[in-house]
Write a protein that binds this DNA or RNA. Structure first.
Lengths: 115, 115
DNA sequence: TCCTTGGATAGATGTTCGTCAAAGCAGCAG
DNA sequence: CTGCTGCTTTGACGAACATCTATCCAAGGA
């Protein structure tokens, strides 16, 4: 819970991040700082229809169900994805705006150099 | 050490990441997954001339010198920044290509949806 | 030469994180 | 209701991490 994300949007290199902005952003990057979660995110994002069922995801790894579930929870709580139960299965999809915002933050400043 | 980064450039949402790609990327995101390191990176990137001296950086935090030095090392080893000693002081600057690559990876796919 | 200052390294410690096995809960089919 | 399957939660444990103090190296000024 707790994802306003309202504040920050200007690139890292534009002006120094405030401490609250940095804390906010670090929470998102922390969610991405694991190979399994990156692949999960990628699998979901690239899946047909923009959503994927947990059963598909679990098969792609040599990990137990609970572990996958744990990583999905981290991604969910960071606001990168949402899960919805439809009947027997649970489907996840990404929040593109959050990805876009992170992407924008990392864009290198263009005011650069000359030196 | 060890930063080819050659492989991956297509967005997360375009096609599923391979495991090696995910490992590679997760190392970079791990370096960004800390508020102090994000602010350090931002301070360096946004600094006049594109580089900043460690002495400037240390003053911006309530942390000891060794701790800042440790975080700079993490950023350095991940390939996000480089440090150069010139006389008494050490200056750091960012590697814009690496930031650009990360930014590109996070761009949400446009092949999305319809449903 | 010695001393001071900027910065990095080494070692120690408390915390966070990734993983699993076991148990729990939600839907669906007899 | 009973049992089965899909997914999540809980609790535990080892590895990785952020921080500190103490020590060390490098450059410059007396």
């Amino acid at each position: 819970m707790s994802n306003q994300l309202s504040a920050c949007c200007s690139p890292l290199a534009r002006e120094p991040l405030t401490e609250p902005q940095a804390v906010e952003l670090s929470r998102l990057f922390k969610a991405l700082a694991d190979p399994v979660r990156l692949r999960l995110l990628s699998l979901i994002a690239s899946h047909t229809g923009g959503e994927a069922c947990v059963c598909d995801l679990t098969d792609a790894f040599d990990l137990t169900g609970p572990t996958i579930s744990h990583h999905l929870k981290v991604l969910r709580e960071s606001g990168l994805i949402t899960g919805e139960r439809r009947g027997t299965w649970v489907y996840y999809r990404v929040h593109p705006e959050v990805l876009a915002r992170l992407s924008a933050v990392l864009v290198p400043g263009d005011a650069v150099v000359t030196s």
